[in-house]
Amino acid sequence: MRENGYAEVLLKKALELTRRLDAKALVIIGIKLKKPLKVSVPILLVGKEVDNHNSLKTLPLPLSLGTKNLVNLASSFMIAEGMIEEGEIFIYVTPSTLGIRKAKKTVEVKDEFFSQIEHVFQEVLELAIELSLEGREGKPVGTIFVIGDTKNVMKYSHQMAPNPFKGYKINILDKESKEIIKEFAFLDGAFVISKSGRVLCAGRYLDIDFKRVSVNIPSGLGSRHLAAAGISKVTKAIAITVSESGIVRVFKDGKIIFEYNPRLH
């Protein structure tokens, strides 16, 4: 049986379980629906390329996060959206797995994270996760991606080294661009990416005066995280950091709204 055949069987079983166990929600991960589902509970579709049926709730996250983390994020999202109460049962299904979970906030994620999910953000987050897992030439790499509000980001930063992207139209939404971006992840400083996905520069030093700017991050985090928090505080940009230990963090308004270590899952 082909994989999509398994998905159809598992989806049918998920619907049966939802009814039999009186589950309060159904989470469908990475499966494209061919027709509307007949179920009385809220349905959440998870994945970057999910098709929305009858205005179902969607959570367009990269599947590279892995089932465990996608389920945890779906749980947090449904609680935040009022789709389910903490402690209630929900069913989740992927093209190869089926499971039962109690709704619980288990991922370090703030409600603001979910409102940032759009195509450019998805691609940068996925790239950050790939860098965490792969590094560069097999070695750990740390970097910063700053997305959006580029006019102000450029105002609060300066170039540390010649900009390798100057004069080129490299866009994060083009799949082949990811390998190009990875090649420059070794540069000190940040990548600056426009809201449309164009990579404006790499090796950008973020100039934040912390005597005037107050940010809310845990003690022990280094200058990379401080800079990311600072630029997200003084501009409307979102910053994503990859630490050499593999932790991916998302910053908005000077605070961490998402924290995840792909190497642990």
Rank of each mutant, 00 (worst) to 15 (best):
K13D: 09
L15V: 04
E16G: 05
R19L: 13
L21T: 08
V27N: 02
I31A: 11
K34P: 00
L37E: 01
K38L: 12
V39E: 00
V41Y: 00
L44Y: 00
E49D: 15
P60N: 13
G66P: 03
L70M: 08
S76T: 07
I79Q: 00
E81T: 00
M83G: 01
I84E: 00
E85N: 13
E85V: 12
G87L: 12
G87Y: 08
V93A: 09
T97M: 10
L98H: 05
G99M: 07
I100W: 08
A103R: 01
V107N: 06
E108P: 01
V109T: 05
F113I: 05
F113P: 02
I117D: 02
E118F: 02
F121Q: 01
Q122V: 15
S132P: 07
G135S: 12
K139V: 12
P140H: 02
V141Y: 01
V141K: 04
T143C: 10
I147G: 04
D149M: 11
T150Q: 07
K151M: 13
Y156G: 04
S157A: 12
F165D: 13
K166M: 15
G167A: 14
Y168W: 13
Y168P: 06
Y168R: 15
K169M: 12
K175W: 15
K175T: 15
K175P: 09
K178T: 14
K178Y: 13
E179W: 14
K182S: 05
F184Y: 15
A185F: 01
D188Y: 01
D188V: 01
F191I: 02
F191L: 06
V192T: 09
K195V: 04
K195T: 10
L200V: 07
C201V: 11
C201M: 14
C201W: 02
A202I: 09
G203E: 07
G203S: 10
Y205H: 13
I208C: 07
I217H: 08
P218I: 11
S219R: 14
S219N: 06
S219Y: 06
G220L: 06
G220I: 13
A227P: 08
G230R: 01
K233D: 03
T241S: 15
S243V: 10
V248A: 09
K252R: 11
K255R: 13
N261S: 12
N261W: 00
R263N: 10
